[in-house]
Simulated assay, not measured.
Amino acid sequence: MEIRIDRDKCVSGGVCAMFAPQVFDQDDEGVGVVDNAAPAAALAAAVRSVVWRCPGHAISVHDREPAPGPHR
């Protein structure tokens, strides 16, 4: 899971840090930041719920493709 925050869209509402503090925080300007770039799988639901709660629609989640295995 790759989590991104578009700083230009962030409205500094703090929803991300409120609902998933294990993953998100806010910088000195109040803009959301990803504090845990590799959250445990148990936090995936919380992260995804923050995506739709974000008032600025600034957060996106991208599933990482598994590395291709050796060809036989």
Rank of each mutant, 00 (worst) to 15 (best):
C54V: 09
R7M: 05
A42D: 12
I59S: 03
A42H: 03
D6K: 05
A46D: 15
E65Y: 00
A38Y: 07
C54S: 02
L43T: 06
G69N: 02
P68G: 02
V47P: 07
V33R: 13
S12V: 10
C10F: 12
A20G: 08
E2R: 15
P70L: 13
V61K: 01
H71I: 09
C16A: 13
W52H: 11
A41T: 13
S49K: 11
F24P: 03
P21Y: 12
M18G: 06
R4L: 14
K9A: 14
M1R: 08
G14I: 07
P66W: 05
A58T: 07
A38M: 09
V33A: 02
G14K: 11
R48T: 06
P55L: 06
A37F: 02
D28F: 05
D25A: 15
G32T: 10
D35A: 14
V15Q: 12
D28N: 10
D63L: 02
C54K: 06
C16E: 04
D25H: 05
G32M: 03
L43G: 03
A45E: 13
D27M: 03
C10S: 07
V23L: 10
A45C: 01
F19M: 10
F24S: 02
A58M: 04
K9N: 11
P21W: 11
F19D: 01
C54F: 13
C16G: 09
A17S: 15
P21K: 06
H62W: 01
Q22E: 15
S49G: 10
V23D: 03
V23C: 08
F24I: 08
R64P: 01
C10A: 12
V11A: 05
G56F: 11
R53V: 00
G30A: 10
R48K: 15
R53T: 00
R48D: 15
D63S: 05
G13F: 04
Q22G: 09
A17H: 08
P55A: 09
M18N: 04
M1Q: 11
P70I: 11
I5M: 01
V61G: 05
R7E: 14
A38C: 03
F24H: 02
V47F: 13
E2G: 00
G13H: 04
A38T: 14
M1G: 09
D28V: 10
V47E: 07
R7V: 13
I3N: 02
E2L: 14
S60W: 00
I5S: 07
S49C: 05
R53M: 14
S60P: 00
P39K: 07
Q26Y: 01
V61A: 03
I5K: 05
E29Y: 11
I59D: 11
I5Y: 02
A40P: 02
Q22N: 11
D8Y: 01
S49P: 01
V33W: 01
P55W: 10
N36E: 15
F19N: 06
A44Y: 03
G69H: 13
G32K: 07
P66M: 03
Q22H: 08
Q22K: 12
V50A: 11
M1S: 06
A42E: 15
A67F: 08
S49W: 04
E2Q: 14
